[in-house]
Nucleic acid binder design. Structure first.
Lengths: 233, 233
DNA sequence: CGGTACGTTGAGTCATATCAACCATAGTGG
DNA sequence: CCACTATGGTTGATATGACTCAACGTACCG
């Protein structure tokens, strides 16, 4: 038993009822339970690193993981923030390539590691599973192409507005209405694809126009409609 | 029989021996042969349009198809050029969404249309097929993320150099060494994600430095190594 | 208390976009 | 056959968005 987390078996895991793993047979579920290993990670920990062998993928039980590519002179390009229910690293395993992104813990997390061999076995032997995997990949591909167009054609202001709306929708807001995903200015810049200073200036413009409220790193959207207008979608 | 092209049956089609369709059973092959319809398209024809219902996907038998998203004020962002052996439109079918790109004929083409229902049936019933599909999607996803980072972080000069090298590798060169894929300056700009004039200026810089030769729309790479240097990968 | 990381602001620069004019070419229709 | 038009290519001038650099403020942490 390689399980080190609070969740004792895969049968009890919420992932089991998620679309991806729903289709596993009893036998496969047992084997998954044996093969997987759950681990706790602390903020800042590296889950996997770009260029390393893709030894498996990770299911996010809780916490938040930052997934990014390292570009020119070490500047991060953030691809996604993964949260509960997301699965990361599968792309490289399926493609049988080294990891092409780095995954770093953004908020303390519990992850289940699924070894590459077993993921490939599942994908080979279980129809629905591989179909769900395919759907997931297609969804991400659509998003990637869409963001590609944005970054190529839209201004920093538009992209920043769009990104704020996106992370608000994806991660929700706390009791005070602040977006739950808390980012540094630099991280925001690394999503939007711009410089830190540009983000700061745009944020204060939004703030001055009462579109958002800022409390430290926390952002609250005061006028979603107006922000949509800035995003110009 | 809905087949209108020179290729009479799927059994004889080169796609059959390609990785994607290799795994089809005799029965599936027969059904594919019945369900598919081959069509000839002329340059400029629209294969499918962004926002329309994804009624099926297309296999490229020959010719070249331009796949792009329409962004701000109708400016195209070119996602890919598909050639013999490529399959387009599958993403939207799998995701059960309207097409999120437009496909337009770049060079006269013969395409086989596979209806959405049958593609989904194949993907449901044939393990290897859906697995190959998954691999394809993962490959494209990797490329998309990679290009995203490029466009966000690299200069027009670097990206243009990279794109020229890429299309040279993908489409090859003719007897005189010119890249087979012939593009307008505007199309090059719409791949790179910049303005037409910027492409023109960069191209003439490359030309003046004897890195490339230009004959009308045709481009010949004289010094691949030097161009790699410009690409700065 | 110093150190480190992050945030902010201003000034200056640069890459790139935009705008405008002009040329070349090819296709069209009278 | 010749205007006419459309499309694409090129160049120069100009504008500007965004980046870079530098300085300084702030906050948290061991």
């Amino acid at each position: 038993m390689k399980n080190h987390s609070k969740i004792s078996t895969c049968r009890e895991c919420f992932f089991h009822s998620s679309s991806l793993f729903k289709s596993l047979t009893e036998e496969q579920l047992d084997k998954l339970n044996y093969e997987k290993s759950c681990q706790h990670f602390r903020r800042g920990d590296i889950i996997y690193r770009e260029g390393n062998k893709a030894t498996g993928c990770y299911c996010v039980n809780d916490g938040i993981i930052k997934v990014f590519k390292t570009g020119v002179e070490g500047k991060e390009q953030i691809i996604m923030f993964a949260q509960k229910g997301d699965i990361i690293g599968y792309r490289s395993v399926i493609s049988n390539e080294p990891f092409c992104t780095t995954a770093k813990v953004h908020e303390d997390a519990n992850l289940c590691f699924i070894p590459a061999e077993f993921l490939l076995e599942l994908v080979q032997k279980n129809h629905s599973f591989s179909l769900n995997m395919l759907k997931l990949a297609c969804k991400e591909l659509g998003e990637a192409n869409s963001f590609l167009t944005d970054i190529a054609q839209r201004s920093v202001k538009e992209r920043l507005a769009e990104v704020i709306l996106l992370i608000r929708r994806t991660f929700g807001t706390d009791a005070d209405g602040f977006i739950k995903l808390v980012l540094t200015r630099e991280e925001l810049a690394n999503i939007v694809g711009t410089a830190t200073e540009s983000v700061i200036r745009q944020l204060s413009e939004f703030k001055n126009n009462k579109v958002i409220e800022i409390r430290g790193r926390k952002i609250k959207v005061l006028q979603p409609n107006l922000l949509e207008r800035y995003a110009n979608l």
